[in-house]
Design a protein around this nucleic acid. Structure first.
Lengths: 231, 231
DNA sequence: CGGCTGATTGAATCAGATCAACTGCTGTGG
DNA sequence: CCACAGCAGTTGATCTGATTCAATCAGCCG
């Protein structure tokens, strides 16, 4: 197999992390990449397992999570098409710091650490590109930590909804995950999410129907998110 | 000033981030670095300010923190001699995501973003070194998030004490920061830290005298830290 | 139609925050 | 040298947001 299938190349080009790389760099990456398929609920890797490479989502969705001794889960991240994850292990690559699970039937790209590292050494553009990704993720975590330690649940939920709205254009956002998953992501439990959503909709800030949420009073949501106001 | 002072070079070599770099790389870094002095309590930069470069601690200590709308502070990081911070802005360099303050009289190195970036592009070893640092920090944050969202305060405090103990060899650890600072770091308030320490010492797990803490029953501490046991 | 999973609601409980009072230490000035 | 101001830390009483436990409800699929 000396040739690289066109679809593999296309898949790589669609990954944010490799955006802007030249064709021949992508070609070389394609040579070290492989695709892997996962069914809904399949575990991609376990916390503590030997980390052998980086993943990127082609199709489907993935969640990264930790589990407490009492069995509670906390979701660190959701990843969708075009997003790479587990890039940390490429450098400090001993073990995975959390678990990964496919939450939909998914197609992933897998790139083994060692080969990828060689690439990076040879290609400063790619190094910069990964540096940027790591920085961004770091910043994201700073925000998440702030949120978890300074804000109460309504503020976190409000912030999250506003964030979701940003990506779409309309004031109607779709929760792509179950409310239980959302709760784990916000550092709380489904019951609380349910109650808070109820309070929000009771006070006319938003409308909820299933996993469709319509933002009605965005100003109010914002002042709750920042903690100025506390519903 | 074409020559680089020997002490500046020595200071750079003592920074973890640049550990392992060859002499001539350090020389080039020395040419773009400057030293800055701060008194205790001085603000190094504010959240939201334009981020112009990376800092490293030569002497003293620095804390990175965020402030909630209600005025509560949360400490994200403490940095001591040899540690670099604000390296995120070098790549995703728009604005500082948090505040930095000298908590002792401090001497810092400052390296402007643009020049540093040029260096990195030219030098893959240095890129790798920074990638490793970022990965490590990311991993650290994953741990911190886990801690904040899955564990209660006693577990967090126990975990922190065990972490401190690792660096020293004896079972006697020194809290280098005020209990108020420690509280902010653990995502709680001084009163709670005080109470938890009291409970720990009442049950004979440790001895407290001022900022000196002696770990007596390490096994117990560990089972509290992991959440197996809840005092 | 059951039976399953996810979502919702209510009541009881708890950990931690808030508020307020008090201790003890340190440094300064009379 | 003592007195007093000032601040960090401690302790207690109270309050509140969130978790827990339990029951119910809605939707979905065989």
């Amino acid at each position: 197999m000396t040739e690289t299938p066109a679809d593999l190349l296309a898949a790589l080009a669609a990954v944010d992390l490799f955006e802007g790389l030249e064709r021949d760099h992508l070609q070389r990456l394609a040579r070290i990449a492989e695709t892997r398929n996962f069914t809904r609920g399949a575990i991609i890797f376990h916390e503590g397992a030997d980390a052998d490479g980086l993943y990127a989502v082609v199709q489907g969705a993935v969640r990264i999570f930790k589990v407490s001794p009492q069995g509670r889960e906390h979701v660190l991240h959701f990843f969708g098409p075009g997003e790479a994850f587990a890039e940390v292990v490429v450098f400090k690559g001993t073990r995975f710091p959390a678990n990964a699970e496919a939450i939909k039937p998914s197609v992933l790209l897998f790139l083994p650490t060692q080969k990828l590292r060689d690439q990076i050494m040879a290609d400063p553009d790619m190094a910069m590109s990964i540096l940027a990704l790591l920085s961004q993720r770091l910043r994201f975590f700073v925000h998440k930590i702030e949120s978890l330690s300074l804000k109460e649940t309504p503020a976190r939920l409000a912030g999250h909804l506003l964030l979701l709205r940003e990506s779409g254009k309309s004031d109607c956002v779709e929760l792509n995950v179950s409310k239980g998953q959302l709760a784990a992501y916000l550092g709380t439990i489904p019951e609380t999410v349910s109650r808070v959503l109820r309070k929000f909709s009771d006070s006319g800030i938003l409308k909820v129907s299933g996993s469709q949420v319509t933002l009605v009073d965005r100003a109010a949501l914002e002042s709750i998110a920042t903690g100025e106001e506390r519903l």
